[in-house]
Write a protein that binds this DNA or RNA. Structure first.
Lengths: 351, 351
DNA sequence: AAGCTGGGATCCGCTGATTCG
DNA sequence: CCGAATCAGCGGATCCCAGCT
């Protein structure tokens, strides 16, 4: 008895040709759009069906300049933002007939070993000859890492780190922060607290900058920042545990998750929005309207970011310029978590 | 002036060999672990660095039986569950040195065109000769679609659809439902409402079954199901809008998102947990503890599911049997959304 | 003679250019 | 001039043999 031939060789074009009494090249012509007599065509199609033949893209990739494959590297948890980006990239890749290679990992950004992991991932991308790479990571040494492969293959970055124009897509964190703060100021709030995102990322520091500038524009002073370890609800709750409720009447949270944790822990302490304070988040995730209270939030369109990123990458690969560049802008959804300040203008004179 | 050589040919082993005054085969030996004199080795490494040479996996894949590449097809939104699965697969793929090809789309499961899209995606997987495929989709015709490629390449399914043993990984939806219902019964609840997940998916119907069996085991009658369109908070809120509060004292929601939407809409109606009713969810997503009130939930470990799925697939590919099969079990996290029934045993005689 | 190392030939599956009827 | 066939080459891996010590 033979061994169980678990993987018998897959049929090739030559096999199809043999069965159809034509050469392999005639079969190839059928797929690449050359001229093939209807007679051969019929025989070939029958042979394909009989053998269960499936075209193999590998040789084409080996031969040609392009592989029609792009790599996506994401760091950090696959949370709402990253998931949205991936969805946008994935949809666009499908529409553009690109194969998408994904690597996602959740390592400590500050661990030196992380650099090696990123390296390995990028090497793996190069080893299968991706046409381009999209990276979404707040890893601090990202630029040096990217520079090593840049030039060899186009790279588009999705972090808000400064890169030269045309190679980066990001949300308008700064604008979102300005929107959020402006909204609170309009409601009469004067003492606005900011729950800042993880410190070593531009996404966080741009929101901090928006917070500062927004307050300055209204002639207000900032309060000391409360820093979050992560973008998650746990971090928001940790902030709430240490927040001094006598110092603020409104809160600008770096994202919705943080706002969720904050509100939860505060109400455990008996302090509830919007009665005792107002709060705004960023992201406007679908769940935000179901928080308690429903959360006012500055929307960020992550799927569009992913879509833009891939289009931008394809532009570089193809040498075209069709993608609108720059930043994905934000808008504000006002809900019940924000209310006018009860004491109106007088508050700033209280202290 | 020449054209702008946007993609000048990447260096090959032959180029490296030429520069290092050795043959390409000697370079190959360096990478595949053959014996190479330390002198040649040094020259080769210098040449590699100078040319920026990177190994190309494509020829190896072309020639060999394996490509060390696996495809992952996910349907539906990249929500908590799917994201967890992808994270698990991604991490495991990295550890096992597998390249991961991802396709994710969010199409109408009942649209006939969806079938074509799935086909295209699978064809694309086959075209680059993946060694195996993992599918996570509630698409009803999945089996017929899979069967077409099954045999050509191993497939592991992550839906709770019935497949022959060893080709499927899933969470214990039924067990989770039993846990949830049992908990409510223990608290003295007799009239327990179920917010069922989308109807055409086994993940949902297994929870319905667990609901029925759990009630039967306690000698209780089920209430009419409230059906959700999706696994999201919007659907939960829609249920809350039509729920008759006089008919139940407790709610078992098919997942946490649905529970969130339900609780939000109910409190808008002035009915709040746990004062007016108790509620349990499924998934135990990290946010659940920050819901208002914190949500009691039956945990599902999606990352482990992804990990198991890939190991199972690799077992099939390699012909080994090292992965523990079967189901990923559940456990219950009890929080403030559930409380003893105020009237104790007497409730079932009220009507 | 045994143990190294290096090089040539052939192949993987497909495609573009060239040749042949 | 059109349809079909031949050939070479993409970039490595592998087998085999030729030098060299």
């Amino acid at each position: 008895m033979d061994k169980q031939t678990p993987a018998r060789r897959r049929p090739s074009m030559a096999d199809v040709g043999r069965l159809a009494h034509v050469s392999a090249q005639t079969v190839s012509r059928l797929y690449t759009g050359g001229t093939v007599s209807s007679d051969s065509r019929r025989r070939i199609e029958a042979a394909v069906k009989e053998l269960g033949y499936r075209p193999n893209k590998l040789p084409r990739s080996l031969r040609g300049a392009r592989t029609e494959t792009i790599g996506f590297l994401a760091m950090g948890p696959l949370n709402y933002g990253n998931a949205g980006i991936l969805t946008g990239i994935s949809r666009t890749a499908r529409l553009e007939d690109q194969t998408l290679i994904t690597t996602q990992f959740d390592l400590d950004v500050d661990d030196p070993a992380t650099r090696e992991e990123i390296w390995r991932a990028l090497d793996s991308f190069m080893a299968i000859r991706v046409d381009g790479i999209i990276v979404a990571t707040p890893y601090a040494g990202l630029e040096t890492v990217i520079e090593h492969i840049d030039g060899a293959v186009p790279v588009v970055s999705l972090s808000e780190r400064d890169r030269r124009e045309g190679h980066s897509v990001h949300a308008d964190s700064y604008g979102a922060a300005r929107l959020a703060v402006h909204h609170l100021v309009e409601l009469g709030h004067r003492r606005i607290l900011h729950l800042a995102g993880p410190g070593n990322r531009n996404e966080a520091s741009n929101r901090v900058k928006g917070y500062y500038d927004g307050l300055a524009a209204a002639g207000l002073d900032p309060l000391p920042l409360l820093h979050c370890q992560e973008w998650d609800a746990d971090s928001g709750a940790a902030c709430a545990a240490v927040a001094d409720t006598s110092t603020f009447s409104a809160v600008f949270a770096a994202n919705d998750e943080i706002a969720l944790g904050f509100m939860s822990e505060m109400s455990r302490r008996g302090v509830v929005a919007p009665r005792d304070y107002s709060i705004v988040g960023v992201d406007d995730m679908p769940e935000a309207r179901y928080f308690s209270p429903p959360l006012t939030s500055a929307e960020l369109d992550f799927e569009k970011m992913g879509e833009r990123a891939l289009h931008l990458l394809l532009d570089q690969i193809r040498g075209t310029t069709t993608t609108p560049r720059g930043v994905v802008t934000s808008s504000l959804s006002v809900r019940a978590s924000t209310a006018p300040h009860p004491n109106g203008q007088r508050e700033d004179r209280q202290q």
